[in-house]
């Protein structure tokens, strides 16, 4: 296994799967401004996906393209964390998931912007500007809805409780991460946890939401060992065109 390729798949797949999930809101959000904001967030993530997966395909060296990786792999070959593939739920849960991921994404990209790998450094320096904007918005929304009406508060607490067991996987380092950290390519995800915890605790306090204290977490996404059943269902939509009409081009 090529560790750099694996790392790039993990990074790109997080963007791809979350980007697709967020794009499912297009035309369905509660108000027009939120619809546009969600679509723009999805677009940024898909743009980042293209950069990461193009490099992943290049490192792999088997002549595959970013599109091949996005549309011609099946569920077990995806390397995104489970948090990104869980269904959207209501608007509150979507924004809570976005915030939990954005906060991680921002810390990770800030580290990757110092990478020893020139291409990784360039992509991260580009993406970090977009993600800083994402976290501004998702954080404000979590605070606004958490410290909002009785109903919005209840729904945000339920969203946090539901998503919490998916948080730990983002920081669950393995041998791929160790190799990336050793080469100065990526920070070790586990090393980001303290900064993430501090930022999230601060946000949840402002949102008047109670942080669950359990450290139990689901796993199996970032190493591809076992995704949730939701990913396969999502791929049947995302990959439908290439499955029905192999090789079709725009």
């Amino acid at each position: 296994m090529n560790a750099l390729h694996e790392f790039l798949l993990r990074t790109g797949d997080n963007c791809l799967i979350l980007g697709h999930r967020v794009s499912e809101w297009c035309g369905h959000a509660p108000v027009l401004e939120e619809d546009i904001a969600l679509a723009n967030t999805a677009l940024d993530l898909l743009g980042q996906t293209k950069l990461w997966l193009t490099y992943a395909a290049e490192v792999e060296g088997k002549g595959r393209s970013a599109d091949d990786l996005a549309f011609l792999r099946d569920a077990w070959d995806f390397r995104n964390v489970l948090l990104t593939e869980v269904p959207n739920g209501d608007f509150g849960r979507t924004m809570m998931r976005q915030y939990l991921f954005d906060q991680y994404h921002l810390l990770m990209l800030q580290g990757l912007a110092q990478s020893s790998d020139e291409t990784v450094r360039g992509i991260a320096a580009k993406a970090v500007k977009e993600v800083a904007y994402h976290v501004d918005r998702s954080r404000d929304t979590v605070v606004g809805l958490g410290d909002g009406t009785d109903e919005s508060h209840r729904r945000m607490q339920e969203a946090l409780d539901y998503l919490w067991p998916y948080v730990g996987e983002m920081f669950a380092s393995d041998t791929v991460d160790a190799e990336m950290a050793e080469g100065g390519i990526s920070p070790d995800p586990a090393s980001l946890r303290d900064a993430w915890d501090a930022a999230v605790a601060d946000t949840m306090a402002e949102a008047t939401l109670a942080l669950p204290d359990s450290r139990f977490h689901h796993k199996g996404g970032r190493d591809g060992r076992m995704h949730t059943e939701h990913l396969g269902h999502m791929l049947t939509q995302m990959q439908w065109l290439q499955r029905a009409y192999p090789g079709a081009t725009w």
Partner: peptide, 13 residues
């Protein structure tokens, strides 16, 4: 501010 995002990725409302 009405929204952090607008009609294109580079704009806000």
């Amino acid at each position: 501010k009405l929204s952090q995002f607008g009609s294109t990725p580079c704009k806000a409302q």
